[in-house]
Design a protein around this nucleic acid. Structure first.
Lengths: 188, 188
DNA sequence: ATTATCTATAGATCTATAGATAATGC
DNA sequence: ATTATCTATAGATCTATAGATAATGC
């Protein structure tokens, strides 16, 4: 009667759980996601999952830490506007990933959300990387009345805003092309 | 012992509930918000609230319908880029309102979210209004390689993206000025 | 008479803890 | 011996329904 218990190497199990958590957070938001839904996706009970992460907040924290690690590799300090264009084009093939960060970032502005410090810090860093990329590519040859910092904030804003529109209406919104058009506008 | 039950005219009560619901949705997201929290804010029990709206979904639907009504008045078919600038400047004084729509819109891309059709439709309409505003203000004198539709999507994206950054970091992000800089960029 | 509001409550969750058992690693 | 996983369960919620009662409007 009793199924043999599936046993997977612990490190792999941890990774499975983190991937499942990211997916479930994307599908339901952080507060709407249940540990049981995450556990079910990897074939564990909710209590089995809590053996790997002591609480739901701790699970979220690890999901975010992992993402940061991956992003550190993508957005090196010496990347230019062409890298941003490639990232957006790549994102256009990964709606699940885009959804997870669109949902979690907006989630994080709600009261006492555990991811709030993470996203505040992350957006500061991303704006700085963007401003730096613009400085590298365009030097001081910016459109009149625009600072590098403003252009950095605009780049991030356009990425996020287009992602939201694209998630809601993928057939109508051309995310990659529209982002390219914006970069062209910056470059004049 | 028993407090006298406070009694308020029904239409006013409905409005109170809708305002409270918008606030609680902003603070916790739709799934994280409880009817009890909304009810408490207007001095009712959760069951008393359900006398006015038959379900949580119905309450959300009314909140969105009301918002649509107000927005229809703001974004008339003949408004230009100057109106958008004024709207952004006005929003910069209403963080609660901005938060409610930033949170609900991102929320709505999650699976089977009741507000999804509303936001899909709404963004289509807003993009169209923006494209029209651009056509009115700039005619065909657009930056090279940019269509009116793309410029419309970019305007909405910049608004939404800046709102998110501003909510996370109000002291660091100059929403109004940065939006103006973008409009200037469009106008060349 | 109608309706606004309450109390009581069913039935589903949800997170987290305690403690048992089965599988692995030495 | 350790650890991965389970069952059992406490204690909080949460939405929604049923039915009682108090206030209003005719």
């Amino acid at each position: 009667m009793a199924h043999p218990r599936r046993r997977v190497p612990p490190e792999q199990r941890r990774s499975e759980i983190l991937a499942a958590a990211l997916a479930v957070f994307a599908e339901r938001g952080y507060r709407g996601a249940s540990l049981a839904a995450v556990a079910e996706r990897v074939g564990l009970t909710q209590q089995g999952l809590l053996h790997y992460f002591p609480s739901k907040d701790a699970l979220l924290a690890e999901v975010l830490r992992l993402r940061d690690e991956i992003d550190q590799r993508t957005f090196t300090d010496d990347c230019g506007l062409d890298v941003m264009e490639r990232v957006v084009a790549h994102n256009a093939t990964r709606p699940g990933l885009v959804q997870s960060f669109t949902v979690l970032a907006a989630d994080s502005v709600t009261d006492e959300h555990p991811a709030r410090p993470f996203f505040t810090e992350r957006y500061r860093a991303v704006r700085a990387v963007m401003a730096e990329a613009i400085r590298r590519d365009l030097g001081d040859d910016l459109p009149p009345g625009l600072t590098h910092e403003q252009a950095g904030a605009l780049l991030v804003a356009v990425m996020d805003g287009l992602q939201l529109q694209w998630l809601l209406d993928p057939d109508e919104v051309r995310m990659t092309e529209t982002f390219r058009a914006f970069v062209t506008l910056l470059r004049r």
